[in-house]
Design a protein around this nucleic acid. Structure first.
Length: 1052
RNA sequence: GCGGGUGUAGCAUAACUGGUAAAUGCACUGUUCUUAUAAAGCAGAGAUAGUGAGUUCAAGCCUCACCACCCGUACCA
C-alpha cells in the first residue's frame, strides 16, 4: 500500500463552493455573447434537414410546469440531432386568437363579448385583443431561455400575422375546392346571459345539482285513438317539438289508464314505474319499429307548416333507452345534439328555432314571446295542463351545466355553423396515423386512434370577433358560396388590396359577378383557432405564397412534442389538415407528455399555491437538475407525475454533484501537475481500460434510446456511469493522481479521466446543456483551445468505439467488486472493522483466466479490504459445494409439461454429478440429455469452512489476529483519533504538529512500534510520551485502553 | 354512462419476446470512513405485486371481472 508519507499533502481546490445556478447564468451569457445557437445552425446548414414543429402556446398566460416539460423535450431532441449533423431550424410560435384572449378583454371591460363589441366596434375590440396578446412574451422568452431551450424567438410566427392568416385562407380554400366544407347546424351550449355560445370545455367547468321540472306529455296519434307519452326535463322545448324517437329494438306497450280514460304508448320496461302512480292496463305490446313512421298531433301548433317537411313523425334512434322517462323521446332538433343527429339520420328537413341567443322566445311562439325559456317553463306546463296533454308532472334533481361566468343555466341551442367533412376522411386519417411513431406507443391505437375512429365532422366556424375571418362570401340572392384563398384573389374580386385580414378590414368588402344577380357578402364567422394551429405547417412558412420548396422538403415534420391534452387539439387538427390537403400525416415522430401534478397529487393551482414557480425553481436548483428530473419521470411518456422539488434536488445530488466533483478532482490535480491534452496517452492499466469500456457502453445505449425517442431511459444510464466513475474509478485510483513527479502511469490516469469527462460532457450535452458546457470549457482550457470546438454544443455527438469495448474486463471488475462485498460481509460477521489489517484473502474460482483478470486488480483489492496478502485458488471443491437450478427460460420451451419434474430433479442433483457436468458440459437425467446452458450452477460454502460465496465467486478471509496485526490495527485507531482531533482543532491539512500523549497498555507499545507510520499519517513531527498532561487533553478509549493526548501546531 | 390510462415496500420509481431468489433512490435501523464530494461507503429491515378468477409447465407481465385514482368525452330525453 502506498500512502503520501512525506511532504505536503496535495492542496485542496481553492475556489469556494461551486454554484450550479451561477455557472448556468455564465453559460447563458456565453451562449448569447458568442452566438452559439446561431453558430450551431450555421454549422449544420448543409446537413439533412430535420424538421421540428413547435406547437404554439396561448399567449395569454405565463409558462407553467407543463410547458417546461414540453420545452425540455423540444430542446433535447433538436440538440441531439444537431450534434448528429442534422439541420434543425426551430422557431417559436404564438397562438393569438380565440376565446382566452377575448375573455381577458371581457374581464378587463367587465362586459360580455357582445356588449363589448357593440361599444368598441369590431376594430376597437380587435385592437384591444391585439394589445394584450403579446403581454407575456417577455416572460415567456426569459423563462424558456433560462431553461436552456434554444429556439428562435426573433423570427417567431403568430397566428394573427396577416401572412399567417393568408395561408390559413389558402388551406380553407383547398378544403372548399375538394368539397369538404358545408354549412349545417351545430348544437352548442349557450349562455343566455352573455348571449353567446360556449365551447364544450367551458360548459364542463360548472356543473351544479339543480331541481328541474320533469313532465310527461301525451301526443295524440293521427291514425288511432291513442297517444304517445313523452318525458322531458325542459318543458320550454315542447313548443318546438317536431318528432318523437323510439328505439326499434325495444318493446312498447299500449296501456289504458281507466281513471284518466286515456290510452297511450310507452316502453314496456317503464310500465311498472308509471303503474305505481296510475292504474294502467296493458292492452298490447308492439316493437318500436311498429311505431316508426306514424304521425301525431303536436302539443302546440306554432310550427304546423313543418308538417310538410316531415314533422310530427315517429323516428328511430339506437340511443333511446327504457332507463328513465317513457322510452319515447321528445325531439326538438334545434335544442339537442342527439335530436339533431337523429333528424339528420332520418332525413328530415323540418326545423324550428323560436329562441334567440338571449334565451327569449321570439314571435314564432306568440304565447310566450319575449319570455326567457326558463321563465316560460311554468306557463308552458299550465298550457299543457289546460289542453289535457299533461299526463304527469314531477321534479327531478340532476346535474346541469351553468355558465361559469354569469352563473346562469346554459341551454343547448342550434347555431348555424360551417363544417369540415372529417367523417368522409376517416379511413385516410387512420391510415396516416399508422405511419406515425408515438411515444408512448399505446396512444397510436388507443387514445388517438380511438378518437379518430369516432371522429365527427368538425365545426370550424365561431361566432366571434377576434380570429381569422372565415373566407366565405355568400351571394345574398342566390346563396352561392365563394371561397377566397388569398389577398390577391380578394383584391381581384373587390378591388381592394388589404394588408390585414382581420374582420375590421374585410367584413365590408363585397363583390358581384358578371351575369349573376345579387351581391357576395362575407359570412360573419371567424375560424376556430384550432384550425389555425392545425394550419401551422403551411402558414408558418406563408406557403404556398412563399417558401414552396422549403415546405415541400420538410413535410411531414420529423418530430413534434406536446401534452396528452393535444389528442383532441393540435395532434388532431394537424392530422386532419395534413390528410385533407396532402393525404399524409403531418408528423412522423411524436413524444406525448403527461400532466404535471402538484406534490400533493392535485392539480397545480395558482390559488392553492401548491407549487414553486418555475423561475424560482431554476434559480434554486438550476435548469439542468430540473431538465433531468423531468425526463427521468413518466412525464415523457404521457404519464402524469407529482412534481416534487426535492426530486429536483435529488438529481443534483445523485448526478450533477458527483459529476462536478469528479471533474473537480481531475482538474485540481491536472492543474497541479500541469497535465495537458497534448500528453494524451493510450492507457494500459486495467481500470483505465475498464472505465473507457464503460464509457463506450454509455454512449452506445444513450444513442440507441435517442433514436427511439425514449428520453426516459437516459438518466438511469447516466446514474450508472457517474456511480462507476466516482465510486469505483476515482476511488480506487486516487493515489495514482497524488504521486509526485512525472510517470507514465500517472499520465495514463490523467488521460483516461480526461477522456471520460470530455466525452461525458458531449454525451450529456443535449440533456444537461449547462453543466456539460461549463465542464467542457474548463477541460478545453487545459490545452490548446483551438483543438476543440468553441462549445460542447458544436461538437459531433460521440459514437461508441468498438475498439475500446472490453466485455471480459467488465465482468472481471464486476467480480472484483463482488469479492469486496463478500470481504466486507465477512468482516462484519467477524466484527472486525476495516481499520484492522488482516493477513490473507483467498479468491476462489475454478476459472483461472478470471482469477488472472482479478489479479490485475490486486492492489485495489488489497487496499479496499485492508489485507496483507491475496492468494488465488482454482480448487473450488475445498471451499464450496455446487448446486444447480434449471434454466427455465431455455428448458421450459423444450420440456413443456415435463418442466416441473425435471426442475425438481435438477435441484436435487448432488455435488459429484454437478462437478461432472461442469467438467464435461453434458448431463443425462431420467432419459433427458442436458447441455451447456440448460443448467445454471451456483456456489455455496462448504459447511465448516470460513469461506463465503455468492452465486458467482467465493472468498476465504482469514480472521485470525496475530499480535503484530493487532498492534497495527491499534496504530490505525490512534491515527484515526488524532485525525479527528486535528479536525476538531481546525488545523489545516498541511499543518505540522507535535503530539504529547499518555497511553495504557497495549496502546503504548503500538504507538512506539508504529511511530513512524502514525507520524506520517498525521503529519506529526514528534510523538512525545508525557505523563503530566493538563485537563484540556483529549481523552479517548481504544479497545478498552485509555489514551490522552494534546496536539500542538508547529510554526510553519 | 362511454373511451383511455394508472395501481409494485412509508414515499418516488424499475424490470427484455410470460422464465423462478421483484431492482433503484429517499426515509428508517445499524455500521464504517479526515486528504474530489452541498458528504460518502457498507449492511439490515421493510412487498399476500389494487382485489378476485382464468390461460400456461411457468404470470408483476397475457385474458376476464371488480375496486380505486387520473385524463378525455357525454350528461341525454
Amino acid at each position: 500500500m502506498t500512502t503520501v508519507s512525506e511532504g505536503e499533502a496535495p492542496a485542496t481546490p481553492t475556489q469556494g463552493p461551486f454554484s450550479f445556478v451561477e455557472a448556468e447564468h455564465e453559460v447563458l451569457a456565453f451562449w448569447q455573447k458568442e452566438g452559439i445557437f446561431e453558430e450551431s445552425l450555421a454549422q449544420t446548414r448543409d446537413g439533412a434537414p430535420y424538421i421540428f414543429y413547435d406547437g404554439p402556446p396561448f399567449a395569454t398566460g405565463l409558462p407553467h410546469h407543463g410547458h417546461l416539460v414540453a420545452s425540455t423535450i423540444k430542446d433535447i431532441i433538436p440538440r441531439y440531432f444537431t450534434m448528429k449533423g442534422r439541420y434543425v431550424s426551430r422557431r417559436f410560435g404564438w397562438d393569438c386568437h380565440g376565446l382566452p384572449v377575448e375573455h381577458e378583454i371581457d374581464k378587463q371591460l367587465g362586459l360580455s363579448a357582445q356588449d363589448a363589441v357593440e361599444k368598441l366596434g369590431v376594430k376597437g375590440y380587435n385592437d384591444a385583443c391585439r394589445g394584450i396578446v403579446q403581454r407575456y412574451t417577455q416572460e415567456w422568452r426569459s423563462t424558456i431561455t433560462r431553461l436552456g431551450r434554444w429556439v428562435d424567438f426573433d423570427h417567431d410566427y403568430k397566428t394573427m400575422d396577416p401572412w399567417f392568416m393568408e395561408s390559413v385562407w389558402w388551406v380553407v380554400k383547398q378544403l372548399f375546392d375538394k368539397g369538404l366544407v358545408y354549412q349545417g347546424q351545430k348544437i352548442v351550449p349557450v349562455s343566455t346571459a352573455l348571449g353567446t355560445g360556449l365551447s364544450n370545455f367551458e360548459a364542463n367547468l360548472n356543473y351544479k345539482e339543480v331541481q328541474d321540472p320533469a313532465i310527461t306529455v301525451l301526443l295524440k296519434l293521427c291514425d288511432e285513438d291513442a297517444h304517445l307519452a313523452i318525458w322531458t326535463t325542459t318543458p320550454w322545448t315542447v313548443p318546438s317539438n317536431l318528432a318523437v324517437c323510439v328505439n326499434p329494438e325495444l318493446s312498447y306497450a299500449k296501456v289504458r289508464d281507466s281513471e284518466r280514460n286515456v290510452t297511450f304508448y310507452l316502453a314496456e320496461g317503464r310500465v311498472a314505474a308509471y303503474g305505481e302512480r296510475h292504474a294502467l292496463e296493458v292492452l298490447e305490446v308492439v316493437p318500436g319499429s311498429a311505431l316508426a313512421g306514424r304521425r301525431y298531433e303536436p302539443a302546440f301548433t306554432y310550427f304546423e307548416e313543418q308538417r310538410a317537411a316531415g314533422a310530427f313523425t315517429v323516428i328511430t334512434g339506437d340511443y333511446v333507452t327504457a332507463d328513465d322517462g317513457t322510452g319515447l323521446v321528445h325531439q326538438a332538433p334545434a335544442f339537442g345534439e342527439d335530436d339533431y343527429n337523429a333528424f339528420r339520420a332520418a332525413g328530415l328537413e323540418a326545423f324550428a328555432m323560436p329562441v334567440g341567443l338571449d334565451g327569449r322566445f321570439d314571435a314564432q311562439v306568440p304565447d310566450f314571446a319575449g319570455q326567457h325559456v326558463k321563465d316560460a317553463d311554468r306557463e308552458i306546463i299550465r298550457h299543457l295542463k289546460e289542453s289535457g296533454a299533461l299526463y304527469e308532472q314531477d321534479v327531478i334533481v340532476h346535474s346541469y351545466p351553468f355558465c361559469y361566468r354569469s352563473e346562469t343555466p346554459l341551454i343547448y341551442r342550434a347555431v348555424p355553423s360551417w363544417y369540415v367533412k372529417v367523417e368522409q376522411l376517416k379511413d385516410r386519417l387512420l391510415a396516416a396515423n399508422r405511419q406515425v411513431r408515438w411515444v408512448p406507443d399505446h396512444i397510436q391505437e388507443g387514445r388517438f386512434g380511438k378518437w379518430l375512429d369516432g371522429a365527427r365532422d368538425w365545426a370550424i366556424s365561431r361566432n366571434r370577433v377576434w380570429g381569422t375571418p372565415l373566407p366565405l362570401w355568400v351571394n345574398d340572392e342566390t346563396g352561392t358560396v365563394h371561397c377566397i384563398g388569398s389577398r390577391e384573389e380578394l383584391a381581384a374580386l373587390t378591388g381592394t388590396l388589404v394588408d390585414d385580414l382581420h374582420r375590421e378590414f374585410v367584413d365590408d368588402l363585397t363583390f358581384t359577378k358578371d351575369g349573376e344577380p345579387g351581391v357576395y357578402r362575407r359570412v360573419p364567422e371567424v375560424l376556430d383557432c384550432w384550425f389555425e394551429s392545425g394550419s401551422m405547417p403551411y402558414a408558418q412558412l406563408h406557403y404556398p405564397f412563399e417558401n414552396a420548396e422549403l415546405f415541400e422538403q420538410g413535410f411531414p415534420a420529423e418530430f413534434i412534442a406536446e401534452g396528452l391534452d393535444q389528442t383532441r387539439g393540435w395532434f388532431y387538427t394537424l392530422t386532419v389538415l395534413g390528410v385533407a390537403l396532402f393525404d399524409q400525416p403531418a408528423f412522423r415522430n411524436v413524444i406525448v407528455n403527461g400532466l404535471v401534478l402538484a406534490e400533493d397529487g392535485t392539480k397545480m393551482s395558482k390559488s392553492k399555491r401548491n407549487f414553486t414557480p418555475p423561475d424560482d425553481l431554476m434559480e434554486r436548483y438550476g435548469a439542468d437538475a430540473l431538465r433531468l428530473y423531468l425526463i427521468n419521470s413518466g412525464l415523457v411518456r404521457a404519464e402524469e407525475q407529482r412534481f416534487s422539488d426535492t426530486g429536483v434536488r435529488e438529481l443534483t445530488r445523485r448526478a450533477l454533484l458527483p459529476w462536478y466533483n469528479a471533474f473537480n478532482f481531475f482538474h485540481t490535480y491536472a492543474e497541479l501537475d500541469g497535465f495537458t491534452p497534448a500528453q494524451l496517452a493510450e492507457p494500459t492499466a486495467v481500470l483505465d481500460r475498464w472505465i473507457l469500456s464503460r464509457l463506450q457502453t454509455l454512449k452506445a445505449t444513450v444513442g440507441e434510446e435517442m433514436e427511439g425517442y425514449r428520453l426516459y431511459n437516459v438518466v438511469p444510464r447516466l446514474f450508472e456511469f457517474i456511480e462507476e466513475l466516482t465510486n469505483v474509478y476515482i476511488r480506487y485510483n486516487r493515489e495514482r493522481f497524488w504521486t509526485e513527479g512525472p510517470s507514465e502511469d500517472k499520465t495514463a490516469a490523467f488521460s483516461t479521466l480526461y477522456r471520460a469527462l470530455l466525452e461525458l460532457s458531449q454525451t450529456m450535452a443535449p440533456f444537461a446543456p449547462f453543466l456539460s458546457e461549463t465542464l467542457y470549457q474548463r477541460l478545453r482550457d487545459l490545452g490548446d483551445r483551438s483543438a476543440l470546438p468553441r462549445s460542447v454544443h458544436l461538437c459531433a455527438y460521440p459514437e461508441a468505439e468498438a475498439a475500446r469495448m472490453d466485455p471480459r474486463l467488465e465482468v472481471a471488475v464486476d467480480r472484483m467488486q463482488q469479492v469486496i462485498l463478500l470481504g466486507r460481509q465477512k468482516r462484519e460477521e467477524a466484527r472486525l472493522g476495516l481499520r484492522q489489517p488482516l493477513a490473507k484473502l483467498t479468491v476462489i474460482h475454478r476459472d483461472g483466466t478470471l482469477l488472472d483478470d482479478i489479479r490485475a486488480l490486486e492492489v485495489e483489492l488489497a487496499r479496499e479490504l485492508n489485507v496483507k496478502e491475496i492468494a488465488y485458488s482454482t480448487d473450488e471443491g475445498a471451499f464450496i459445494r455446487l448446486y444447480a437450478k434449471a434454466n427455465f427460460k431455455q428448458l421450459g420451451r423444450r420440456l413443456g409439461k415435463e418442466m416441473k419434474r425435471y426442475a425438481t430433479a435438477i435441484a436435487a442433483l448432488g455435488p459429484e454429478a454437478l462437478e461432472a457436468f461442469v467438467e464435461t458440459g453434458t448431463l443425462e437425467l431420467e432419459g433427458e440429455r442436458f447441455g451447456e446452458g440448460d443448467l445454471e450452477v451456483f456456489r455455496e460454502p462448504q459447511p465448516a469452512t470460513e469461506a463465503l460465496s455468492n452465486r458467482f465467486i467465493t472468498i476465504d478471509l482469514s480472521t485470525e489476529l496475530t499480535p503484530a496485526l493487532r498492534q497495527e490495527g491499534l496504530a490505525r485507531e490512534v491515527v484515526n483519533r488524532i485525525q479527528r482531533a486535528r479536525k476538531d482543532a481546525d488545523f489545516h491539512v498541511s499543518d505540522r504538529i507535535t503530539v504529547r500523549y499518555v497511553a495504557e497498555a497495549p496502546l503504548d507499545a503500538a504507538i512506539e512500534a508504529h511511530g513512524a507510520y502514525i507520524g506520517g499519517e498525521t503529519l506529526a513531527v514528534a510523538l512525545v510520551p508525557e505523563a503530566n498532561l493538563g485537563e484540556e487533553a483529549t481523552a479517548v478509549t481504544i479497545d478498552g485502553a485509555a489514551l490522552r493526548f494534546t496536539l500542538t501546531r508547529e510554526a510553519r
